[in-house]
Design a binder for these strands. Structure first.
Lengths: 248, 248
DNA sequence: CGTGCGGTTGATCCGAGTCAAGCCAAGTGG
DNA sequence: CCACTTGGCTTGACTCGGATCAACCGCACG
């Protein structure tokens, strides 16, 4: 885990902090949205910018999890390990999302970077105390948590009731929409086939087969392993099964 | 939907409110925990006590959902309807749990009473405003939401990875634990077989078969349709599959 | 060149869904 | 009081979708 801050004067640190917030592309969607200049600065001073390489883990399920954080850039997965050693992906964290468990005991999931990722990380005790003093921050955190809950519950429906083909189609739709990629344009598949399987509650072979079927039906094009293009959104949406709509 | 309040003098209403809170058995676990006497009274004055009969619905998925509430007594289900008409139960709400979606647009699930239920219900706009003015209330709501999120994510694992037998066993364990019933003592199954199936992402036939197997293996006894007794917790826990532990 | 790893494809198996029949307890009407 | 219905549950026979096991492909890397 590489931490960007080093030794510097208080003034230099403050300037770095301010510029950090000023150039932050996700402020509007993050929990720090709505914090005034002074409060924002106070808040930021308590955290650190952390950069994770692909594959690095921020916290482990069950650990005392000393930190929470806000994603600035990149993509992380939240996972839980099963007794048989397989892992289930519980969700993804994108820029603006919040990770970790404030006011709690142990971390409820393992948080791992899927791409190079940058976060604002806070010691949990410090974060908890600061939130207690700043209702507007707590409010943003509450909104984020409510959204995450809604999203998790929609995903429950997919896992409980959708067929393998529907899951894969739903996944592609969600990836394209979250990335804001238009139909016809190539969108990135950030996950490996194994990770897609872990996410969708399937096996790698089934994921592969269903992708092949979607390609053969001309709903999508798969130029390479890590990208896809929506050729026929209606067909894809149809294959996703009514779309009780996972999109937030 | 039967609303208990009628016309009464301000003083009588206030007394009713106070006694309502005083005799509330779930205060400690509800979002109103930690509200001081005056604030609690203020808060309570803004809501109403609502009683739902078994089967009555408090709000519908997708509706503008004008209310939120805190469960005092009884049991409700949160459901979402699939395009094919089947429903998936997203979660249960027990005394102390919070239902509805504050600060949001539409209700994200349908909320229906499974037993006779009593709630403190608030108009959403009123609730939102009151929460904004009372950080301690917002804090409690946040804690509840974080817990609900953790619970939903654990349930995702069950739906994504567990076999039918494991799901049914996990369900029985959770029911017994939530009701605080000791092994050997009869515990209530509040749901019908159909509702269990909707909850576990199975069909009614499969639920029935797996219950029969558990009975035959002497893990549980099923005196009648609506109750069960844990005879061998080790066996049941084993059948639940390692128990990556759904209990909070 | 091999060697290894991620992905695809094929053959087979098994668990849960589907369809259908029957059971039992609680109404309901003659 | 008894035949008949009704609704929730169980059980059985069969089907089918996705897991499993296995072979193979293609590419990166030593």
């Amino acid at each position: 885990m590489y931490v960007e801050t080093g030794k510097m004067t208080a003034r230099a640190a403050a300037m770095a902090d301010i510029s950090s917030c000023a150039d932050c592309t996700i402020r509007s969607g993050a929990i720090c949205a709505g914090l005034g200049g002074d409060t924002l600065h106070e808040f930021f001073r308590r955290g650190r910018r952390v950069k994770l390489e692909r594959g690095q883990t921020l916290m482990w399920e069950g650990d005392a999890a000393p930190v929470v954080g806000s994603v600035r850039r990149g993509l992380l997965k939240l996972t839980s390990m099963l007794s048989d050693g397989r892992e289930q992906i519980l969700g993804l964290a994108l820029p603006g999302d919040f990770v970790g468990r404030p006011f709690g005991g142990r971390a409820t999931s393992t948080v791992t970077a899927l791409t190079e990722t940058s976060l604002c990380v806070f010691p949990r005790a410090v974060f908890d105390a600061f939130v207690a003093d700043h209702p507007e921050l707590q409010h943003e955190l509450l909104l984020h948590t409510l959204d995450a809950l809604d999203h998790a519950r929609r995903w429950m429906i997919l896992l409980a009731r959708k067929s393998a083909g529907e899951r894969v189609a739903s996944f592609l739709l969600e990836m394209a929409d979250r990335a804001g990629v238009a139909d016809g344009e190539p969108a990135e598949i950030v996950l490996s086939r194994q990770q897609m399987a872990d996410f969708l509650g399937l096996t790698i072979e089934t994921v592969s087969r269903k992708l092949t079927l979607l390609r053969q039906s001309r709903a999508v094009r798969l130029p390479d392993l890590k990208s896809f293009v929506i050729l026929n959104r209606a067909a894809l949406s149809d294959a996703a099964g009514g779309e009780d709509r996972l999109a937030a």
